[in-house]
């Protein structure tokens, strides 16, 4: 199946979806693995937040579970768009399968961790996944290519709107869960991450003025 996704073999993928070869359990496992793989690829954020090894692993697992929830909302968004905008009679299960299958290239999301080449690889995998989805949705759901693109784009917009409105408490829970797993609030935005690095663990490198204000890490550990 992964091979079919790599080759964007839509006929093969259609057969997988229609024959129900990808059961609910396999779909969930696939989505969780993709989530885990991408969490590993983006784990630099956990390192920057100085998360300890055990909590690090727990954070990766939590990220995978949260990814599965995001996947669920994404499926729901596409379903609502295809049903109400394009009058498609595709079921949620069918859409869930085709979206999960199109995620297959992202199983290699952990490669984003590779220095220098990691980020371009990650973009390439996401693009491949998107192409698989845009190619797969019209065939499986019986939509025109333009409707398929619109379904995916409008689905993304709807997901964003849901996130910013009724999804806010869920986002808050997700943030809380991440902080619980990591043992501290996780900084994720680029500017604050930069500040974290500049503040750094090595107090010998801080400017004399900063050194006066902050307790050095070595002393804190010793005391």
């Amino acid at each position: 199946m992964i091979d079919q996704v790599w080759r964007l073999d839509i006929d093969g993928l259609q057969a997988v979806v229609e024959q129900g070869a990808l059961g609910a359990r396999l779909t969930l496992i696939l989505v969780l693995l993709v989530g885990l793989s991408e969490a590993v690829g983006e784990s630099v954020v956990l390192f920057l937040n100085r998360v300890k090894p055990r909590r690090f692993i727990l954070s990766l697992v939590i990220s995978a579970v949260l990814f599965a929830f995001t996947y669920g909302f994404w499926v729901l968004s596409i379903y609502l768009v295809t049903r109400f905008a394009f009058d498609s009679d595709a079921t949620v299960v069918t859409i869930a399968r085709i979206v999960a299958i199109s995620y297959a290239p992202r199983l290699f999301g952990f490669l984003a961790f590779i220095p220098f080449f990691g980020v371009p690889i990650s973009y390439a995998l996401q693009l491949w996944s998107l192409l698989a989805m845009i190619q797969g949705v019209p065939v499986v759901l019986g939509l025109s290519p333009l409707q398929a693109v619109a379904s995916v784009v409008l689905g993304a917009v709807l997901l964003f709107v849901l996130n910013s409105t009724i999804g806010r408490p869920i986002t808050g829970i997700a943030r809380w869960l991440r902080a619980r797993a990591a043992g501290r609030p996780i900084v994720t935005d680029r500017r604050r991450l930069r500040q974290l690095v500049d503040a750094g663990p090595e107090w010998g490198l801080q400017s004399p003025a900063d050194r006066e204000e902050k307790r050095p890490r070595q002393r804190r550990a010793a005391g």
Partner: peptide
């Protein structure tokens, strides 16, 4: 080898 390359710097920073 490439995948493991950042671990020393990151592990050092994280206090591992």
């Amino acid at each position: 080898a490439m995948f493991l390359a950042p671990l020393e710097a990151l592990g050092w920073y994280a206090g591992w």
